[in-house]
Each structure stands twice: as structure tokens, then as C-alpha cells.
Amino acid sequence: MSQPASITPATAETARQVVSAKNLGLTFQTNDGPVQALSNVDLTIGKGEFVSFIGPSGCGKTTLLRVIADLEKPSSGSISINGMSAEQAREKRAYGYVFQAAALFPWRTIERNVALPLEIIGLPKAEQAKRIARTLDLVNLTGFEKKYPWQLSGGMQQRASIARALAFDADLLLMDEPFGALDEIVRDHLNEQLLELWGRTEKTICFVTHSIPEAVYLSTRIVVMSPRPGRVTDVIESTLPKERPLDIRETPEFLAIAARVRDGLRAGHSYED
């Protein structure tokens, strides 16, 4: 359709683009009539970014993540991951997904849980063992290989599930409120570890949250979303440095970004009724 001259710069750009959504919309048919979960979402996420999606419940942030993961099909618009369709990307195992709950299989030990995606891909046993050791080390769970999920605390279980998502070495990590069910102390600790892990692995991370401090602390970019219909109301670039100790959260710069996020949420009527 387009001329060859215009294709070259476009493909060069898509190489850097990990996620690209254009005019994305999704409508669920429910018993109470159609619900517009996503409407007119335009978004590009570049390689190595840490993007948070924040908004009240019903704003479509989880739905957007699920569309990226090909767990939901959009009803309009287009989405591409690494220049492929969402379905192709999933078939190529382009991303690791971390759910709200750890979702570990209770009948598998921690190491067998991390091995699950590797078994499905069909990696040889020796390679599996190497990857398991490496990813468990990344999330500081070395020594817990033979434990069953119920023998671990909630925070450790969620770390194991992150290790599982990292195991097959996808460049994109999709995280759906992974620390939402944990207490604040554990959460702070895991946020710190996640940043460190992101710095070391240079992965692209999409992170859904409803906590403003969490979003500001972690992200290079914050996507503010709003409900009825679910849409993007603001995109905030973080000016914080890459190195972020926990006490960065008391700096004026941090508080200024947090205030912008709060303003964005207010502008989207998120605080009403």
C-alpha cells in the first residue's frame, strides 16, 4: 500500500517499539448491555522502558495488559508487539506475564514451577536447570528450590512467579498488580528488587497498579487511565534518575510527579462518586 521509501524508516522505528497500539477499543457484551472497557487507546512503548498503568478499577488497565498479552481480542483498532500481531507475539513467547496472585501450581515445587514454561517450550533438562538456577538467583530465592508454594510467604510466592515469568527470557514483562495483595513493607522491598532486576536485565516492563507512589517510584513513564469508557487521559514522563533508592520518595521531584499523576486522575473524574 505505501511506497518503499516510507517503509524503511517505519520498520527502523518499529524495531525500537516493543508495544504499539493504535486507536484500540474493546467492548465487552454483558447482560446489562455493552461495556466499553477500552476506547481510543494510542500508545507506543519503546525498548527498555518501565511503563506503569494507573487508574481506578474499571479504567481498563488490566484489560489493556491482557490485550497486549493476547488474552483478550480488541474489538477495534490495532496492536502490535515487536512488529507482530499480539497473537503471533504470544505464539513466539514474546512476553512473560505476572498475575495479581502468584498462580503457582500447588503440586509443583518452586523449581518445578519455574520449569513449567521451559518444559512447555521443550528445552533440554540441562538448559532448564541452568535457567532455573539463574532466575531464582535473580529474585533471591536460591535455596528454596525444593519447597512447595504453601511453605513460602506471599511475597516469596510472588517472587517465584516473577522468576517463572523471567525463565524463558522474553524481553517484555507484563505485570498485573503483582504486589497488590502484599503488605506495604514487603511491597517496598519487592519494588526495590524489581527496579534492580530491571536495571540488570534491561527488559521492557508494563506494570499495572493502583498505587500512585508505586507507579512514580518504578516507572520511566506513567500512563494515567480513566473509566467509563476506559481510556488514557494523561502520559507522564518521569524525570527521576535510573538509580532510585527508596528514600527518593521524599524528594520534591518525586512528590511533584505524584501530584501530576493525582491531577491526571482527577481530570479523568477518577475521584468522583
Binding site: 505464539e91 506475564y97 498475575f99 498462580a103 512447555i120
Partner: peptide, 13 residues
Amino acid sequence: ELMHLDLMHTYNA
């Protein structure tokens, strides 16, 4: 649970 089935789906199992 649905979450476990979704998980298998993300692995393209």
C-alpha cells in the same frame, strides 16, 4: 482456575 488456564495460554501451551 481461570488464572492458571490464562497462564498456560501465555505460554502458548
